[in-house]
Amino acid sequence: LRLEVKLGQGCFGEVWMGTWNGTTRVAIKTLKPGTMSPEAFLQEAQVMKKLRHEKLVQLYAVVSEEPIYIVTEYMSKGSLLDFLKGETGKYLRLPQLVDMAAQIASGMAYVERMNYVHRDLRAANILVGENLVCKVADFGLARLIEDNEYTARQGAKFPIKWTAPEAALYGRFTIKSDVWSFGILLTELTTKGRVPYPGMVNREVLDQVERGYRMPCPPECPESLHDLMCQCWRKEPEERPTFEYLQAFL
């Protein structure tokens, strides 16, 4: 395994491009020591290896001592969030954005069929390849993070704006909380990567959403798509659509 080009840095580690087995181009995620327990990670990795779908980033291998390494397929255009905010983002029109959403829903419909939960679905965790191919990455890892700023769910590192209220408040993460996050991801797509709930801080978002506030229809977004977002944001988790439905609708 060779680490060649550093692609990015996040709160919990770095991402590199490299070569595996001398020939395969891969992405390598390294986790800061202390982010998660190697034992817990190894268990999760076994499950992650079983998830194989064309719209999920394929896991190739893991190094399960500290520092933990995760070796996955390489996606040339990086994260969907950076892609939307970058040069190419300007030229993306609604049909392409909807197609990308459908690809993500397709990957998540598979996660749904496998009775698995992602827990951290957002544009930053979707990767883009050639020809606007989108794949879901980092599934299941969020559960293992041991950082206090994260586990408190009120901490600075927790993605509260993407998280369903029952998950943020009571830790009830299910495929239905993933559906909520998918609704937020749809706003990221239609606004080219704007942060959700602009002008609001995490605490406010939690309070307002509890009181029934939902983001309005983004500019140039059809009402039918906003309606779909609002279905994803129904207060009762069981009233939210399935990913199978979302995939078919898109």
Rank of each mutant, 00 (worst) to 15 (best):
N115G: 11
M17I: 07
R234Q: 09
P216A: 09
A45I: 03
R203F: 15
A102Q: 13
V63S: 05
A142Y: 00
G155Q: 04
D178I: 00
P219D: 09
L56S: 12
P196Y: 02
V117Q: 00
E54A: 12
T24Y: 11
G8S: 03
Y170K: 09
A168T: 05
P38L: 07
F83I: 08
T174D: 06
K85L: 10
E149P: 05
G8K: 02
K161A: 05
A27N: 00
R119G: 00
R172T: 09
P38S: 15
V47M: 06
R143G: 02
M200S: 07
K235T: 13
G78W: 04
L42P: 03
M108P: 02
V47I: 14
S76P: 12
G22V: 12
Y116M: 09
R52S: 15
K29G: 02
V209T: 14
Q43H: 12
D120I: 00
G13F: 03
V133G: 13
C11H: 13
L84S: 11
C230H: 14
N125G: 00
K55G: 09
S106P: 05
A102T: 13
N148C: 07
L144T: 08
V195M: 13
P222L: 06
A109R: 15
N202V: 03
L31S: 10
A40S: 11
A164E: 08
F182D: 02
T88C: 12
E130S: 14
Y245I: 12
L246W: 05
L186S: 05
G171F: 12
M48Q: 03
K135Y: 09
Y150I: 02
L189I: 12
K161M: 08
P222M: 09
L80N: 04
E236N: 13
R211A: 09
V136S: 03
F243Y: 11
K176V: 09
V5C: 15
P165G: 11
Q58R: 13
T242G: 14
N125M: 00
F83Q: 07
M36F: 01
W162D: 01
M17C: 11
T151V: 14
M17V: 07
V179L: 07
L186W: 05
L132Q: 08
F139S: 01
L7G: 15
R2Q: 08
S64K: 04
T88Q: 10
L225S: 06
K49W: 04
N21S: 11
G171N: 05
H118Y: 03
G183K: 04
V57Q: 10
A152E: 03
G140I: 00
L225M: 13
T35L: 04
T30M: 15
T23W: 15
L92A: 12
P241K: 08
D178Y: 02
K235G: 13
S181L: 01
K176H: 11
K50A: 12
L42R: 01
T24N: 13
A27L: 01
S79G: 04
K161N: 04
L127K: 04
G22Y: 14
T242I: 14
V5I: 12
R93M: 09
Q9F: 08
E44G: 00
V57F: 07
Y116W: 07
P196T: 04
A105R: 01
V136E: 00
Q247H: 11
Y213T: 04
R214W: 05
T19H: 11
L132R: 12
R211C: 10
